[in-house]
């Protein structure tokens, strides 16, 4: 399947037209590389994209590399991608719930990507009650963004919680999303699988509304690496 068309299709069908959705993309290691590809697709058609990075996975070098592959000046991507990093769940909380909408409007972005929303909850110094509070506030903020036509993509690696009793945060994360994708990797082949879309008022894409659907949407081309290429 052609990569450009497929990613176009995902971005068009599930995020930008009509605007105002919450999507979840999860899977193994390369999920953040795929998120970068999606961010680039969005940048090709939008003035800016905003990333909240709680997984410490934003890689400017990958943005630059993709730009070069497309024969585009890397700074045309780097100057229009805004990022804030969070190292504790409390920082993540205020990054999303305190002034995000104003910032997004200020840079004329219609798309927010959140890396590792639940990663920072796997911390024994963070009580579950705090996590519940944070998730509630984040959910409300994402909903209000959605109503204002701003789409959010939540990106998460497949959760491996060290602490017992915290696994269900992934279910909570899933519940926030209108549409859920899984990145699958079989040897060298990677596929994005559309796992589920939800009914109800959150779902603005009525034509594709179904409770559970498995659909292979795109094969990721080899060579899109997670990190900088090795020195030759």
């Amino acid at each position: 399947m052609d990569k450009k068309n497929s990613l176009h299709r995902i971005v068009d069908r599930h995020f930008t037209a009509p605007p105002g959705k919450v999507g979840l993309l999860y899977g193994e290691r390369k999920v953040y590389s795929l998120a970068t590809l999606i961010a680039v697709e969005i940048l090709m058609r939008n003035p800016a994209v905003v990333i909240i990075d709680a997984a410490n996975r934003v890689d400017p070098y990958l943005f630059a590399r993709i730009a070069r592959m497309k024969h585009i000046d890397p700074y045309s991507f780097l100057d229009r991608t805004y990022v804030t990093r969070a190292y504790t769940c409390y920082q993540l909380d205020i990054s999303i719930t305190d002034g995000l909408f104003q910032f997004v409007c200020g840079v004329n972005a219609q798309f927010v990507i959140v890396y590792g929303l639940i990663d920072l909850f796997d911390d024994e110094q963070v009580p579950i009650s705090d996590v519940v509070d944070i998730l509630r506030r984040v959910r409300e903020t994402l909903r209000s963004l959605m109503l204002k036509g701003i789409s959010t993509l939540l990106v998460s690696s497949t959760p491996h919680f060290k602490l017992k009793g915290r696994e269900y945060f992934f279910a909570q994360l899933s519940a926030m999303a209108d549409v859920r994708y899984r990145l699958e990797q079989h040897n060298f082949d990677q596929h994005i699988i559309l796992e589920e879309t939800t009914h109800g008022k959150n779902n603005t894409d009525r034509n594709n509304a179904h409770s559970v659907r498995r659909e292979q949407l795109v094969t990721i081309p080899q060579g899109v690496t997670e990190r900088r290429p090795k020195r030759v």
Binding site: V50, V58, P60, F63, Y75, F77, L78, D79, R80, T81, Y82, V83, T84, R85, A86, T88, Y90, Q91, I94, S95, D98, F103, V107, D130
Partner: peptide, 16 residues
């Protein structure tokens, strides 16, 4: 207490 200051938004070129 638990309210740290957040990182201000910056472009990726500034992050570099």
């Amino acid at each position: 207490y638990k309210r740290p200051i957040k990182e201000s938004f910056k472009t990726l070129s500034t992050l570099l």
